[in-house]
Design a protein around this nucleic acid. Structure first.
Lengths: 206, 206
DNA sequence: GTCTATAGTCGGATAGAC
DNA sequence: GTCTATCCGACTATAGAC
């Protein structure tokens, strides 16, 4: 696939990453793609049309590229390790999604495709969590689908945070890894503590 | 403080929230502030100059407004409850910070003030966590400062996520509350499990 | 300090030749 | 499908009157 449409899609993703939502103009994207500016409108109707198409295109491609790695995850710690890899990958679309999210707060056209792009990651994490947390107190007392969404949101937040405070972001990630270890231990505590936890939870108002 | 400079600062914050980083132009901000467009440059030199000043100004003001609520937090669950309130507050600057973060990925001028704005929240959360988690396994095995940074990043991510999938964001928050309850129980398990956890942690490679 | 006016640039979008 | 050329509005920033 090396036709103009694909070039524009990749150009849009590159531009979103390197110049942000505020710099994602038809001209900038066309330059990045190495094609004529008018073709943005000919093929996609408008800049937002191209951005939404690019988002759908990119999310599909990206998650597939990481599918095998997701399948190899065996613990929360593994998942965070993979998250580290994904965030370190220059070509990963976390930054692109962050920019589209920023734009979506203000431009309703962008919302559906951005939500779809996010859901690709969420589904993958949901799948992994369901597998990794099966038969643990976590899956019994915490909505795993909700947790998958929270993790996706946190990854986006960390990606943005990294852009303004690399050391702080590294510290944040390290603490999450420590927390994951702690939760893994919680899993390993066995049926006795599971019972203790269950009775404790029953005692609560909410 | 109702002079032009202050009007512009507030106008900038409003514009960032309502029109995003891509819509934060001198004209839009001046219109929101009810002043002349040229004054942006007279008082702040450039649009980015105004945005950075507004960020510093807003973060200071906001965190102070919530200080008492932070002081009242007694548990992780309380903290998430407060987070819910802050995210629901239209005038809160989470959205503004999210937009500035998106811009900072691409515009180095914005980085220092955005980092400062974020650190105001991080410090507050750090303070609360230090108090709430004192004498718990969490504070013993997890870098609390890192956790504070992770929570700030997650809140930013959730704020953005909410803009494209309200139901999904609600689910994410609910699952975090369940997780917080679980962690609170971990705190209550007493010295025996603390010892168990400690030996388990020693057994690990990392 | 505040205004008008304006220079110069960049943006979205379209018309029409090839 | 792709190009050039162009319209027109919005943008940053400045000059200069008040």
């Amino acid at each position: 696939m090396n036709d103009t449409k694909t070039k524009l899609l990749r150009g849009a993703l590159d531009t979103l990453r390197t110049r942000g939502i505020a710099g994602a103009s038809a001209r900038n994207i066309a330059t990045a793609a190495g094609v004529n500016q008018a073709l943005v409108f000919h093929h996609f109707g408008s800049v937002n049309g191209l951005l939404t198409a690019a988002c759908t295109f990119g999310a599909q491609e990206q998650v597939e590229a990481y599918r095998k790695r997701f399948d190899a995850v065996r613990s929360l710690t593994d998942l965070l390790e993979l998250g580290r890899t994904i965030r370190a990958d220059e070509r990963a679309d976390l930054s692109m999604l962050a920019q589209l999210l920023a734009g979506s707060q203000v431009t309703p056209d962008l919302v559906p495709s951005t939500a779809l792009g996010l859901s690709r990651w969420t589904e993958e994490i949901d799948r992994v969590l369901g597998r990794v947390l099966a038969n643990t107190p976590l899956s019994e007392f915490v909505d795993v689908g909700g947790l998958a969404r929270a993790i996706t949101a946190a990854f986006i937040g960390l990606d943005l945070y990294e852009g303004v405070d690399e050391a702080g972001a590294a510290r944040a990630v390290a603490s999450l890894e420590q927390l994951a270890d702690l939760l893994t231990i919680l899993e390993d505590l066995g049926p006795v503590s599971k019972l203790a936890i269950r009775t404790q939870l029953r005692r609560r108002t909410r």
